[in-house]
Design a protein around this nucleic acid. Sequence first.
RNA 1: GCCCCUGUAGCUCAGCGGAUAGAGCAGUUGCCUUCUAAGCAAUUGGUCGUAGGUUCGAUUCCUACCGGGGGCGCCA
Length: 541
Amino acid sequence: MAKREIQIASAIERALTELGISPPEGGVKVERPARLEHGDYATSVALELSKQLGKNPRSFAQEIIETRAISEIPHLKGIELAGPGFINFRLMYSHLHESLLELLRQGEDDFARSELGHGEKIQLEFVSANPTGPLHVGNAWWASYGDAIKRVLERSGFNVKTEYYVNDTGGQIRTLGESLLARRSNQAPPEDGYQGEYVVELAKKYNGPDDVLEAGKFAVKENLAAIKASLLNLNINFDEWFSQASIEESGAVDETIEILASMGATYEKEGALWLEATRFGDNRDRVLRKSDGYFTYLAGDIAYHRNKFLVRGFDRVIDIFGADHHGQVASLKAAMSALGIEAQRLEILIGQMVSLVEGDRKVKFSKRAGNIVSMEWLVSELGPAVTRLLSLSSSLDRAAVIDIEEAKSTSMDNPAYYIQYAHARIASIFRVAESRGVLVRELAEVPLDLLKTPRELELIRTLISLPDVVDDAAISRAPQRIVAWLKSLASAFHGFYHDCPILAEGIEEDLLQARLQLAKATQIGLRVALFLVGIEAPEQM
RNA sequence: GCCCCUGUAGCUCAGCGGAUAGAGCAGUUGCCUUCUAAGCAAUUGGUCGUAGGUUCGAUUCCUACCGGGGGCGCCA
């Protein structure tokens, strides 16, 4: 809850105390009603408590309203008893002006920043696509998500490190090397190899020996460079690129398996070493070391996650997996439990598959078959802002459908431009103000209380809700809430811009100054929120 | 068969247990001597998959069923 809600909630708690009633478990909830006619803030506490107290909710609400504590709520203008027992609070506009002033004093660095996370150390792993080819559209989707979650968590006071786990070892690298060598000698790649055209390009650049592993390593290096470049195109940078080979070479996998074995969590069967995962909540046991002596992917992943928790000391680890890797979740959590790490500290978010349609036609893609729709292509078609906004407009849980035709054809009235345009318009106002020699007064000299038309008040209301939205997005790992807020803020601003001229003839100097400050505050809000979703705030369009 | 996600306007999607369910696109219609019309305003469009349950109150939580997607390897 934001500051104002907390003020009111604590007043209600004092009111209950006056009446000799203990507050509900989890505290009194105060919310902002969807409709303005229901007041600025409302509580349903009377409805919640009336049954256990054997009271009529409406008369109980009336008792609360009449307490001294309620009458002392700052900025209080009126109270209403509504519906089955809601208490609606109406505040004077001064509460909005006070909050606006606070926002302006905090500025871009501090507004909507909180200490919710108390510096908790979080490691956030996402994308982690195998470096066997270019990133596809789904990777772009989840990458935008992961990056935005990082930004939002940091704003809420968490200490976040992002990481890309590079699967640079194992059978797939061998397969990749085989495919490359085949292409170099102008042959078709193996049937289960990588068929993509990009392998032909890699083969042209490769002048090493006819060695599958050498060729594979070369291809990985090249692919990884391409992956980094595409992510950078989307304004995404990782703190760490963690090599799977490095963890195997360091002996950490052996070490981890020995620990699991010493704890009696493993057994041998048919020449392989198994993890007794069923004992820890998985629905089947899992192989750690194959009968050919090689470790499974899972074994490496367990060692890697052990490293995150026990070697690097993260309090919490968040992984974002694609839905096609959902099967790993139970195994990995089981392994953590077996290692004595509470499974709750490992949080795995699943990104549902992204599909493409072009008109009525479904576009299928698969990395092995080579007909992937690359992230590179998508970003070049739509631009980074539209790509990020489109992916952050829906929840990670939903299997998104992108209509390529529509994404392209509607790009001119895309919400991304709608939001960016608001920012550009504000920048333009300040450019014009400067060119006309308008002096922007010191904040303390500006009568913000002149802002009282519905447009101005609505804009302020939307603006000051951002701190709550950010914390909520952080807790729920839901950066799409920031996008929703941006859309509503842009809408409130465009309405204000249309109806409330700032620099036009006949606008009194005091009002001009107040409106300039409101524009300034909007600029701050836009810049903060656009940064959180990784979208550029343009000065002009 | 088992596990995960999902079903909201013609389409793509929001929606923190609350009051009359929202946005964009698509449709219809107004507004540029003005700080950028990439804008504003009006209007059409809904049995929130179905049936139960919990609750003062359910689109939201629980159960079952029906549709859609994904996963159930000594692949990664």
